[in-house]
Amino acid sequence: MTPDDHDHGPGTAEDGLAAEFDLIIFDLDGVIYLIDQPIPAAVDAVDRLLRRGSPVAYATNNASRRPGDVAALLSGMGVPATDAQVLTSAGATAAMLAGRHPPGTKVLVVGAEALRQEISAVGLIPVAGADAAPAVVVQGYGPRIGWSDLAEACVAIRSGATWVATNTDRTLPSKRGPLPGNGALVAALRTALGREPDQVVGKPAPGLFTTAARRAGADRPLVVGDRLDTDIEGANRAGMASLLVLTGISGAEELLGAPPVRRPTYVAADLTGLFEQVDAVPITTATGATASWRAQRDADGGLTLDGHGRTLDALRLLCRTAWQGEAPTRVEASGPAAGSALRELGLA
């Protein structure tokens, strides 16, 4: 049994969590799909939102696809989407650079073809090497980036080019587990150069989320993501509520130790959490839903869980208890039901 087996509580699309917000902003990898395959329940959840008329948007740090390509991928999975609903870190980076540099400025692109196309579309000139004397180096994820690409970027930056990263995601979700993301490639240059990028455009910077809300004219957006370090921190920086789903990178252990800037408003096993009763999914509000679970902080900094009930309710209670002090040193169970819940959450 998995956490979501316990956590599909009562509620409908009309009276559930999603009805409290006027825009749902989805991350993609780890939330809607993994690479190019839809995550179970994701397609049905988005369909329910669209049928009730809920506005949606998609904000991704992945700089290897253009908005039209992302919209086509989503539509092919049964999730209707338009170019205007998709915001990528590549597009945001190109728009930012176009506002700072005149047309014809040379930009050394270390990334996928989609990033080159975004740079070209705003009137800048993508180049491949340091000998072209680029004014800017833009670094985004690309599966074929190699040592020679990083070497050209290193030379250009040492020669005075501004260094911009589309994002610094350490990993990318995959069917085989987390794989190196753009942040890992940025780290290679950081080591070689001994400094940080001049600017990081994508999440956790709030720009993708604030742009999505502005386009939709939304006053009460909800950010839905799978990563604490990008989606949730970005939502908090933007002053927006957030829902963490446990279908991608961040899990229960990371959640319990999260610093305040990375703590979500809500947590659910998957996107069906959007349709739970509003009082069932918050983390920091104690409700009757967790009355059958008890969590206690021990003198040595550990947590002990006792009782029975839905697994995600146990996680929410553990978070409330853990966040009252330092990150817990361990989590233990008192009783078989608690032991089963901790195993399902990967905490045993």
Rank of each mutant, 00 (worst) to 15 (best):
C154G: 05
A156I: 01
G160A: 06
G160E: 01
W163A: 04
T168H: 08
D169G: 03
P173S: 10
P173L: 06
S174H: 07
R176D: 09
G177S: 15
P178Q: 06
L179W: 06
N182L: 06
G183A: 02
G183R: 01
V186G: 07
R190H: 04
T191H: 12
A192C: 14
A192F: 06
L193Y: 12
R195Y: 11
E196L: 14
G202N: 10
K203H: 02
P204L: 01
A205Q: 13
G207V: 08
F209Y: 14
F209N: 10
F209K: 08
T210I: 12
T211H: 12
A213D: 07
A213M: 11
R215W: 08
A216G: 07
R220D: 08
P221H: 06
P221A: 00
L222T: 11
D226R: 13
R227C: 11
R227A: 04
L228S: 03
T230G: 12
I232N: 11
E233M: 14
N236D: 02
R237V: 05
S242C: 13
S242K: 13
L243C: 00
L243H: 03
L244R: 08
V245H: 12
G248D: 10
G248C: 05
I249C: 03
S250N: 06
S250Y: 04
G251I: 12
G251M: 02
A252H: 02
L255E: 04
L255F: 02
L256I: 12
A258D: 05
P259K: 01
P259T: 05
P259C: 04
P259N: 01
R262V: 00
T265H: 12
T265C: 04
A268T: 11
A268G: 07
A269R: 01
T272I: 04
